[in-house]
Design a protein around this nucleic acid. Structure first.
Ligand SMILES: [Mn+2]
Ligand SMILES: [Mn+2]
Length: 307
DNA sequence: GGGGAGA
DNA sequence: TCTCCCCAACGCGGG
DNA sequence: CCCGCG
């Protein structure tokens, strides 16, 4: 990929790649060719987490220092082999044709459009009202809170364990972490969100000096924000393996719990993650398999009349 | 990044 | 032919 | 109902 333009054929579909030499991450010098090389390499691991989920992307055609925009609707002249999902929301009535990244050629096509961030819905189009995971988004309000993030994640793991649930951690690729709790796709978003709120409150009770669920930035006092409100339709949590538009081209990477003990926020980027992922495989594979029930925690909450 | 509208 | 504009507006919850 | 937040 040294020339500026070429056509690749993937699964019999032709994808035109343009401006391959364009630098998207200036200080690291990573080009669009590097981005597409990464997407090709990571697709076997990332693809299953995007499949059949309405997708929102952020695009940075002039690189991470240039202008960017969100894209929800499939753009005009989207190739006919790109699958889409039409979502009609009411009040005001609006229709969005979401892209479904169901194959490699779609991901490469998106890469050519300079899509850096990939935000799939928590629910798939098969059960669009029922998320497949409950998530916790740990956001440090100050840089240098990495040790606190790791400690909170490990405490959260223990609390989940006591509730009969298993969580799976990944870096966000920015400063914090995401913990996914895979579920049976039978609970409405509101139930999942309220359950997440309850669990987050248990974590804050255990670690009140470093964790908070306060949504007011000023009242967080430098603590780590446990954001459970991302458990809503259309929210934008970046997918596992998604690159980030930040210096050095970091990516969101699944971690083992042992790695969380010494959490560092950006251990891998679009270049180094390839070796990592080919070595350990998809640590997030269980997130698509281990569909857990909220029944124990929901009956507990019903007894305590928390709801 | 690329299509469409308007000059 | 050139330049400019558009690409998302939403869910949540507290005051 | 608006506002702050992500
Ligand atoms: Mn976050
Ligand atoms: Mn957040």
């Amino acid at each position: 990929m040294t020339t500026g333009e070429q056509v690749v054929t993937i699964n019999g579909r032709q994808v035109r790649l343009t401006n391959l030499q364009k630098v998207l991450w200036p200080e690291a010098g990573y080009t669009k060719a590097a981005l597409i090389k990464y997407l090709l390499a990571v697709y076997p691991y990332m693809g299953p987490h995007l499949c059949q989920r309405p997708l929102v992307v952020t695009r940075w055609p002039d690189g991470i220092c240039g202008k960017s925009f969100y894209q929800k609707n499939a753009p005009y002249h989207t190739p006919d082999w790109v699958e889409t999902f039409t979502w009609e929301s009411g009040e005001p009535e609006r229709t969005i044709d979401y892209i479904l990244c169901n194959n490699l050629e779609t991901l490469v096509w998106l890469g050519n459009l300079a899509c850096l961030e990939y935000h799939p819905w928590l629910s798939s189009i098969q059960q669009v009202n029922n998320p497949d995971f409950l998530i916790f988004d740990l956001d440090p309000s100050r840089p240098g809170s990495s040790a606190a993030v790791g400690e909170i994640a490990l405490t959260l793991r223990e609390i989940l364990w006591k509730l009969g649930l298993e969580g799976y951690p990944k870096t966000s690729g920015a400063t914090g972490m995401h913990i996914y709790v895979p579920l049976e796709a039978v609970y409405p978003y509101e139930t999942v969100r309220k359950t997440a709120a309850f669990i987050a409150s248990l974590v804050v009770a255990a670690l009140p000096r470093i964790a908070t669920t306060n949504r007011s930035v000023r009242q967080r006092e430098g603590k780590v924000y446990i954001d459970y409100l991302q458990n809503a339709r259309g929210q934008t949590i970046c997918a596992p393996y998604s690159p980030r538009p930040l210096p050095g081209a970091p990516v969101s990477v699944p971690l083992t719990w042992e790695e969380v003990v010494n959490f560092t926020p950006r251990p891998y980027n679009i270049e180094t993650a390839i070796l990592r992922v080919n070595g350990v495989g998809d640590l997030f594979a269980p997130v698509l398999e281990n569909r857990q029930s909220l029944k124990p925690v929901l009956s507990y909450l019903a007894r305590k009349k928390v709801f």
